[in-house]
Design a protein around this nucleic acid. Structure first.
Length: 501
RNA sequence: GGCCGCAUCGUCUAAUGGUUAGGACAUCAGGUUUUCAUCCUGGCAAUCGGGGUUCGAUUCCCCGUGCGGCUACCA
């Protein structure tokens, strides 16, 4: 088996909550690189911090990855020959390797209490010194260590970091980066509860799982020297490293919960399609060197190159996502649309009632009506949520913006007259004629005789009936609402516009 | 504070030691359309600052500034 030639990447999230959109992109890039090279993509759960664990942590991650279509070849739920893929189930492995390091003097027991460490850190900061472990226990004699162990004193295991010298790490997109060992702390590798820290578990697992390319966030760059050191101490070949940029929010700073909901599934619930999210996320920090904008997961897999990754941190804004999403939405058939929104009505948490209402209403319509409404809706909506919100047309628009009742090229006075004329005209139209097509014919004949332009009449009508900027045509709205409701809304609009005394 | 990284239109980005610094989104204007939208055309808009190196720098080097990350028995 020439495992050495097979590219293997992994996504290694910690199950501390919802999968973040930035994490999703990290997973995407790792997936793309593996697939581009006909290699394997693994999922590994790094649950080594019991205090931060969250209920359904693993499910929150797998649900998001599955939604995007990023299937893993090995990992939770699918298994594989290098398992288990959940770190809390590998504790004995880490213990064993920690002991090996201690035996080699590459790591040591530390019995310092957290009180002592806190006090030390405060003192160092007060003196404007960088906070660092003072290596007190590193100087303990073997006898003293054995004695403490025998007494059952709580301990952690720390990495023996070189006291001086430099280390150069290589990053595929950033090149060589030099660190001074003097600036690096004796990292804790095993915590007092018997769990490993990220640094230890990550290195051991990446080696055991034969990971060839570590693709992770830039926040890991400063600890990479410690990871390289561990590989050296174990006598293992280190994988290649690629550190990805971090998504910034519009307000500046790392994108986080503080700046609204940034979880991947939030985007699903807001009505974005996975194809759009994949497409958009891929273009944030990576560029195919062409002017093309649309890529499926398969196309991305073909084109992806680690060397084309952009170094700077991008600001995450949704305008372009909306545009891309509309592009993919337009390809949806009525059936697919309904299927998508039906799924959302079951999963989208607090928004699901809206989706439910839409499904209920939409599926009650005849197929031709569905086709017609979707045909006109898809041109003016960017998300499935906006599609579902078109239901307000049926529910009744409660809030009008008085300014919007008037067409941009018209005036309040003229518009008032239009509303009056509209009501008179509609009052004389029979119920049998109250369908989109006949209404269309009637109005298109009538408007030229009034002296107004199409916009003078149709915009106020459409806005009065829908209450929103973008909606189906006024005639479709009128048909859906029926004559009585149509007249009611027109009159209401007129009342708002007429100055009260 | 220390260490590390990064720096092109508002945003995502392309390009080169010599270009009118290109594209997309957004925005603005005009046109098509039965209003909005869609679609088409056009406009506005960027190389952070200062030094070098060079015939020439946005590109290479240094300094500064700004932004970001790390600085835990969190990942």
């Amino acid at each position: 088996m020439n495992t050495r030639n097979v590219v293997r990447t992994r996504f290694a999230p910690s199950p501390t909550g919802k999968l973040h959109i930035g994490g999703a992109r990290t997973a995407l890039f790792a997936y793309l690189w593996a697939k581009k090279n006909n290699g394997q993509f693994l999922l590994r759960i790094e649950d080594t911090d019991k205090t931060r664990e969250v209920e359904n942590g693993v499910a929150q991650i797998t649900e998001g990855l599955r939604w995007l279509g990023l299937t893993w070849d090995e990992g939770p739920e699918v298994g594989g020959e290098h398992g288990p893929y959940i770190q809390s189930q590998r504790l004995d492995i880490y213990q064993r390797y920690a002991k090996e390091l201690i035996a080699k003097k590459a790591a040591y027991y530390c019995f310092c209490t957290s009180e002592r460490l806190d006090a030390m850190r405060k003192e160092q900061q007060a003196q404007k010194q960088p906070p660092r472990y003072d290596r007190y226990c590193r100087r303990m004699t073997d006898e003293a260590v054995q004695a403490a162990l025998a007494k059952g004193v709580n301990f952690v295991v720390r990495l023996t970091v070189p006291e001086s010298g430099k280390i150069t790490i290589h990053d595929i997109v950033r090149g060589d980066i030099v660190f001074d060992w003097h600036d690096i702390d004796d990292q804790v590798l095993m915590k007092s509860d018997g769990y490993p820290t990220y640094h230890l578990a990550n290195v051991i697992d990446d080696h055991l799982m034969q990971i060839t390319h570590v693709i992770r966030g830039e926040e890991w760059l400063p600890s990479t020297p410690k990871h390289i050191l561990l590989y050296q101490l174990f006598g293992w070949a280190a994988p290649e490293f690629t550190h990805l940029s971090i998504f910034l929010s519009k307000q500046g700073g790392k994108m986080s919960k503080r700046h609204g909901d940034t979880s991947l599934l939030h985007f699903r619930d807001q009505g974005y399609l996975p194809e759009a999210v994949v497409n958009f996320a891929a273009l944030l920090g990576w560029n195919p060197k062409t002017t093309e904008e649309f890529f499926t997961l398969e196309e991305l897999t073909e084109r992806f190159e680690l060397t084309q990754i952009h170094k700077a941190n991008p600001v995450f804004e949704t305008e372009k996502l909306d545009w891309i999403n509309q592009h993919y939405m337009k390809k949806l058939s009525v059936l697919q649309l309904l299927e998508n929104i039906r799924n959302l009505s079951e999963n989208a948490e607090e928004i699901s009632p809206l989706y439910k209402k839409f499904v209920q209403w939409f599926s009650s319509l005849s197929t031709p009506r569905q086709e017609s409404i979707w045909g006109s809706l898809k041109e003016r909506t960017h998300t499935l949520r906006e599609v579902a919100e078109s239901i307000v047309v049926v529910e009744g628009a409660q809030e009008y913006d008085p300014k919007k009742l008037v067409w941009k090229k018209s005036t309040v006075e003229e518009t008032c007259k239009v509303y009056i004329a509209l009501q008179e005209k509609i009052a004389h139209i029979s119920e049998e004629q109250f369908l989109a097509k006949p209404l269309n014919d009637i109005f298109m004949q009538w408007i030229p005789t009034t002296g107004w332009g199409n916009g003078d009449v149709l915009w106020p009508m459409r806005y009065a009936l829908s209450g929103v900027d973008k909606s189906p045509s006024p005639f479709e709205l009128a048909e859906i609402l029926g004559k009585e409701e149509t007249l009611k809304r027109l009159q209401y609009a007129q009342t708002i516009l007429t100055p009260h005394q």
